[in-house]
Nucleic acid binder design. Structure first.
Length: 552
RNA sequence: UGGGUUAUGGUGUAAAGGUAGCACAACAGAUUUUGAUUCUGUUUGUCUAGGUUCGAAUCCUAGUAACCCAACCA
């Protein structure tokens, strides 16, 4: 029973902290900014933070980092909560950095009192110039030595709304020559006369990330504050502020963000794809957003498994999309109902089958006996997949060709006798004879065939729109290519076909997952209506024949 | 060219001085009424150069490469 899995470096730290008695239980948080939809990158952070407190005593908060009123909205708050729940996690407290605006203001006053912060009248450009460069020290602002009293007065008036946007800021007084650019008197507060999605017009000064995140962690007694690598330089400031403020010492730890091949994973880029209409919204099934993947048919289980499998570390990485697909197929293989659907239909006519006769045949719903069986109609005229027929059989071809025999899944063995073509050379119909004594489950024919193909009875077939998705980008890492990442969009990432599906699919529900036999895993799309079935292809099946065919 | 972070098969991740392991991918075979699943096997790796040690992915020295930092974004 003891599944031995080695610990990641954060678990190492936590176990050491727990063993040393530093904490009896831990508190983590997932801190999204509500300015966009969650994507696979967030899924890693969610699985990590919530997973840690499933494994160790403690809990995880959901905290919205809503300190920038101009980009944030409650629409995003709602979608984020929905996505986390769907992934299967529960937060202890739903909190907002904006809940702490009052505390944060008092912290700022405290810093001013200790002569560790000052009001600066410099413009944005002047401050940037004064910062220096990574190789040259910055210069002190002429306002750096204002008296505590003056700073207190000015900061109060900033809060009172006496000054326009951008006219003044509050800065920490640290060291303009520090080798860490972030320690060169970082901005703590800026003036923004903007409406906030929760505090409305109560505030016109808003704290910067660095004066909100660590303080919020501290207020919530977060023990392990986990973020991505690019925040490493912030840690020094994070610690400095906590120390000077004398508040609860949360600690920041950083891991490498996860990248996935053939897609992009930044809110900025995803927003561009949406705005430029390369996709149809944030939940387009081609998007690496949680909502897009959910609509595509991914299961929460498969995403959790994937995050668990790739683990966490501190090095640059691009994980193969095929690993995600593996986790997906592994889950779907167990849960998906087997059904038959023909995506590129061509007619198969069984010459020796009685006109007008319909037979109900039993077919398995799943990979084992537990999922039961259902009845499907069989008749003289069937739809079969165009690619299952070749005018001249290739090497190792197990499917239909003149003179060749195949089994029709759950039905009879047939032999192809002839076929017809139209003026353009397209095969229009295929004629075959069937062997009555070869019926599935009661086969006394003694015949053996290597191929089994799927089919749908033409008379009972239901037509459906099927959306076939492929990878969104043509290259593994669009962000690291020359030029604009959008130049590498795969123009064939979506193709829509008109298919014939077996009648049982008329009752398909949104929460069901199907395996269209030999074609892949599919799910009903939310745009489907009772009269118009729409299916999304979640992922194809592995296809050994496609590889074989490529070789020849 | 200042500071910081990271280097293990094609990819992701283990090995806390003691047999370089696991998964994906790839390849080969067996089973199969899904060319799926399942099962078996194979190929491929410690950034480089020195050093310490009986023994180094791990410790030391010197290099090299990649990424991050100069937003009133987070």
């Amino acid at each position: 029973m003891s599944e031995e899995k080695s610990l990641n470096f954060i678990e190492d730290i936590i176990e050491a902290d727990l063993a040393a008695g530093k904490y009896n239980s831990i508190v983590t948080r997932f801190p999204p900014e509500p300015n966009g939809y969650l994507h696979m990158g967030h899924a890693t952070a969610i699985c990590l933070n919530f997973g840690l407190t499933k494994k160790y005593p403690g809990y995880t908060n959901l905290r919205f980092d809503d300190t920038n009123p101009v980009t944030e909205d409650t629409e995003y708050v709602d979608s984020i909560k929905e996505d986390i729940k769907w992934l299967g996690f529960e937060w202890k407290n739903e909190l907002y950095a904006s809940d702490y605006f009052g505390d944060l203001y008092q912290y700022a006053v405290k810093l001013i009192d200790k002569n560790l912060a000052y009001v600066d009248d410099l413009s944005s450009e002047e401050i940037a110039t004064g910062k220096g460069t990574p190789t040259e020290p910055g210069t002190n602002s002429p306002f750096r030595e204002r008296s505590v009293a003056e700073n207190l007065d000015l900061f109060a008036r900033m809060k009172a709304g006496e000054f326009p946007d951008g006219s003044r800021t509050l800065r920490a007084k640290i060291d303009m020559a520090h080798t860490n650019m972030l320690m060169r008197d970082p901005l703590l507060y800026r003036i923004k006369h903007a409406h906030h999605h929760r505090t409305g017009d109560e505030w016109c000064i808003y704290p910067m990330y660095d004066f909100a995140h660590g303080q919020s962690d501290s207020i919530e007694n977060i023990t392990h504050s986990i973020c991505t690598l690019e925040f490493i330089p912030h840690r020094e400031l994070y610690d400095w502020l906590i120390e000077k403020l004398g508040i609860y010492p949360s600690h920041q730890y950083e891991f490498a963000r996860r990248n996935l091949s053939y897609t992009v994973m930044s809110k900025r880029k995803l927003l561009q794809l949406v705005n430029d209409k390369h996709v149809n919204g944030w939940d387009d099934p081609r998007m690496p957003t949680i909502s897009g993947m959910r609509r595509r048919g991914f299961t929460a289980q498969s995403i959790r498994k994937f995050c668990d499998t790739i683990g966490i570390a501190k090095r640059e990485n691009v994980t193969d999309f095929s690993l995600l697909e593996f986790c997906l197929r592994e889950d779907l293989n167990q849960s998906a109902l087997r059904v038959m659907a023909v995506l590129d239909p061509v007619k198969l006519i069984i010459s020796n089958y009685e006109d007008g006769r319909t037979e109900e045949l039993s077919s398995d719903n799943g990979p084992d006996e537990t999922t039961g069986t259902r009845m499907i109609p069989f008749s003289k005229e069937l739809w079969i997949e165009r690619e299952d027929f070749m005018e001249e059989a290739a090497k190792k071809w197990f499917r239909l060709a003149p003179g060749a025999m195949v089994r029709l899944k759950s039905a009879y063995i047939v032999r192809c006798d002839s076929f017809e073509k139209d003026a353009e050379g397209n095969v229009t119909e295929i004629h075959a004879t069937y062997f009555p004594e070869s019926r599935s489950g009661a086969d006394t024919s003694g015949l053996h065939v290597k191929g089994t193909i799927h089919w749908v009875s033409a008379k009972e077939a239901v037509s459906a729109e099927v959306r076939l998705y492929d990878r969104l980008f043509k290259v593994e890492n669009p962000s690291s290519e020359e030029g604009d990442f959008k130049d590498y969009i795969n123009p064939d990432s979506l193709s829509v076909v008109k298919a014939f599906v077996e009648p049982s699919l008329k009752g398909a529900r949104l929460d069901q997952r199907f395996q269209f036999l030999r074609k892949g895993y599919f799910c009903l799309d939310k745009e489907a209506t009772p009269g118009h079935l729409i299916f999304n292809r979640t992922v194809t099946l592995k296809d050994a024949w496609a590889k074989e065919a490529k070789k020849n």
